[in-house]
Design a protein around this nucleic acid. Structure first.
Length: 677
RNA sequence: GGCGAGAUAGCUCAGAUGGUUAGAGCGUAUGAUUCAUAAUCAUAAGGUCGAGGGUUCAAUUCCCUCUCUCGCUACCA
């Protein structure tokens, strides 16, 4: 394998519209931190960069909702997350942010560079602008009358009734679906990165030269490349972001996917004047730690940007992890279904390593995993306390009881002693190999095997019995146990930095290097170790139950209607309301629309006639469960053709904040066609 | 629906270019032990390797179909 002179480790920039939770940690930050700490311990030249991703529409929407500025939103979460990472021991060399001046400069320069080299495609188009909302409207946010079939609900990109492809300017009487107002036509210019141009190169680079990438990463890249790449717009009409640094681009910013990865570069620039060494020297090995939702950006799009620029290196590996669930449910910021890092740090002071251990031991490396509080408790009590903490404790206690903490001189080695001593470097090596292959779960297990071996060694040699009969032999045993302890404090350092620091204080071992791992005379005879204490404490059921209860409360709240309910819309007149013909109907037949995930085709009796309605409810209701049900429909909604089927009307559904749909029906059966008012 | 990844002991995961009794940690049971936070050590029980078909002397491992989970994407009046 190629040798590299230095390493550049990047961790996905967390989006600054919420706090960090265990899913982020297990997927990205714990692995990247273990990797970085390992490299540093080895003495490699390595920097680890990260920062808040602070642009994009969701942040502006959140700001609007809370009545504050986008900057205030990102300031809040940047502060929370930066501190939480620090307190948790994620040792970034820099945690920057994309609203920094240096990032604006870096991103602008990057854009300008590509612009001047003619790497972009420029396209001017007329787009509708919503004066009320103060923004340009994407095609699908505009509806209007179709010029061909005069369907009044045609979309800006297509009329679904007659199937014609449209552009928004074709629509008669266009309306903004955001504000409901009439948008005005404005000319707007955008820049596109022609990804298709890089396709042959990407195919070679990934599919031929990086077959070692994880299967999930490789598979998804292949899928994209096989389908063929399209040019992608790099700019957007928005007032929050890095302005497009070109004349005539007022009111335009860099699209957030273009802007965010450049954040890695600006963070590096902010960190060191020597940044180019890390980004432009082919002897630097760049590694992107990300979650699986980010694969395309880091493997296809960002490399294309770097390639287009020309002077940058490309990632050598992109170890994307899968997702972590929480107590059998998807982690969700909006549903508050998460264990928030800043809360954990408050509620479990001094227990960073416990969470680091639980998340690493159960990291979603090959498939989605489930985090449970019971699992964290079990790993703490049965592994950290019982195996690691216990071994360290018994060794230090024995050394202090027998030798007042002075490392005894070893005597002749038994075959078993030799066997144990030989396995120390072996375990150190297998831990290192696992880390270098991004198999952190396995690495942690290998490292813990050394503590297991220590316990076995003491149990088999029984120094507490021999102390009366063979005191010389006990010296050897305690010496070896202490050497194991010292080695543990090295090979577990990347995983459990807080505890291992404590352990090294007890053993008086400082200035460690990874290369010392396997050395079986780290603590020379006569060296003083102190009595130590408890490396880890048991976590009682009560503590765990409190956390589980907290989550159960969240679940209850989510099931109630209040949490996250949509704001009440602006007032309408009774006249407006009375235009709608809402009535009862009964489902006669139901079937799934082929080649769709959500659509059901329903034949219903609505009193006056029997008609067909297509409805996007297949995820919640099977065709069988619909037949015979009495439902409510809007009978006079403009018909619309969906997947080639004309749908006349719409079924009324209640939608909760999670998007889950529930059928709305009359409480008691009534005649079909009864109107609702 | 398309594409990608996954489905292996109670739990979390390894693994095999197809071949004698499918591995590990945790949990469980039994025994041993007391230096240690009732911690440790040993032994054992636990799996028709998601379902169904095919190829083969032989498949959990290859091929096909299907089911479920997650991601990307389409679609959702």
């Amino acid at each position: 394998m190629k040798r590299f002179k230095r390493y550049l480790v990047t961790s996905a920039l967390p989006y600054a519209n919420g706090p960090i939770h265990i899913g982020h940690l297990a997927g990205v930050y714990v692995p990247s931190d273990i990797y970085t700490r390992y490299l540093r311990l080895k003495g490699e030249d390595v920097i680890s960069v990260c920062g808040s991703d602070e642009h994009g529409v969701p942040i502006t929407l959140k700001a609007r909702k809370e009545g504050i500025t986008p900057q205030q939103v990102v300031d809040r979460y940047h502060a929370i997350n930066k501190k939480a990472f620090e307190d948790f021991g994620i040792a970034f060399d820099i945690y920057s942010r994309t609203s920094n001046k240096i990032h604006y400069e870096t991103a602008s320069d990057f854009f300008l560079n590509l612009y001047n080299k003619g790497e972009f495609i420029e396209k001017t188009s007329l787009q509708y602008y919503d004066n009320e909302a103060g923004c340009f409207l994407a095609d699908r946010y505009i509806t209007g009358e179709c010029p061909h079939c005069h369907n009044e609900n045609a979309y800006g990109d297509q009329c679904e009734k007659c199937g014609t492809s449209l552009s928004p300017s074709d629509l008669i009487n266009p309306r903004s679906t955001i504000s409901g107002s009439q948008p005005v036509m404005k000319e707007t210019l955008h820049w596109y990165l022609p990804l298709d141009k890089y396709e042959p190169w990407l195919k070679k680079w990934i599919l031929e030269e990086h077959t070692e990438w994880k299967t999930n990463v490789y598979g998804q890249c292949k899928s994209w490349l096989d389908q063929g790449l399209q040019p992608r717009a790099v700019s957007r009409d928005l007032d929050w972001g890095v302005p497009v640094p070109v004349k005539g681009a007022e009111g335009k910013v860099l699209y957030v996917w273009f802007d965010a990865p450049i954040g890695y570069i600006s963070a590096t620039r902010e960190l060191t004047p020597d940044w180019e060494k890390y980004w432009k020297d082919p002897e630097t090995r760049m590694i992107h730690f990300i979650g699986k939702d980010n694969i395309v950006f880091h493997c296809i799009i960002f490399p294309s940007m770097l390639k287009a620029e020309g002077s940058f290196i490309l990632p050598d590996n992109v170890p994307a992890n899968e997702f972590l669930n929480l107590e059998n449910d998807k982690i969700s910021t909006s549903r508050n279904w998460a264990v928030w890092l800043h809360e954990y740090l408050e509620e479990f002071p001094g227990k960073q390593d416990v969470l680091r251990y639980a998340l690493c031991a159960n990291a979603p490396e090959t498939k989605d995993n489930d985090f449970t509080w019971k699992d964290l408790q079990a790993r703490n009590n049965n592994e950290l306390v019982a195996i690691l903490g216990n071994f360290v404790n018994r060794t230090l206690v024995l050394a202090n009881n027998y030798y007042s903490g002075k490392v005894p001189e070893p005597g002749d080695l038994s075959p078993f002693d030799k066997e144990v001593l030989e396995s120390i470097p072996r375990l150190a090596e297998s831990t290192a190999a696992a880390i270098e292959n991004f198999r952190f779960r396995e690495g942690l297990k290998e490292a813990m095997n050394l503590a297991r071996l220590g316990n076995k060694y003491l149990a088999d040699t029984e120094p507490w019995k021999l102390i009366k009969t063979e005191p010389g032999r006990v010296k050897t045993i305690i010496n070896i146990s202490l050497q194991i302890t010292a080695n543990l404090s090295i090979i577990l350092e990347p995983f459990l930095p807080f505890s291992m620091k404590k352990l090294r204080e007890w053993t008086g071992l400082d200035k460690i290097k990874w290369q010392d791992a396997g050395n079986v005379s780290l603590l020379p005879p006569g060296h003083q170790v102190n009595k130590g204490g408890l490396l880890f404490e048991k976590i009682e059921d009560e503590i765990i139950n409190r956390q589980i209860e907290k989550l159960m409360n969240t679940r209850k709240e989510n099931e109630g209607s209040a949490a996250g309910a949509a704001a009440v819309k602006s007032a309408v007149t009774y006249e407006d309301f009375s235009k709608m013909d809402i009535r009862t109907a009964t489902v006669l037949e139901a079937e799934k629309v082929p080649k769709t995930a959500k659509l059901l085709k329903l034949k219903i009796d609505c009193g006056t006639d029997i008609r067909t309605i297509v409805s996007g409810i297949a995820e919640y209701y099977t065709p069988e469960s619909m037949v015979g049900r009495q439902i409510l429909i809007i009978a006079n909604l403009e018909p619309r053709t969906i997947k080639g089927i004309e749908s006349k009307g719409m079924i009324l559904m209640a939608e909760d904040p999670n998007g889950k749909l529930t059928l709305v029906s009359p409480v008691e059966k009534t005649g079909n066609g009864s109107t609702v008012k």
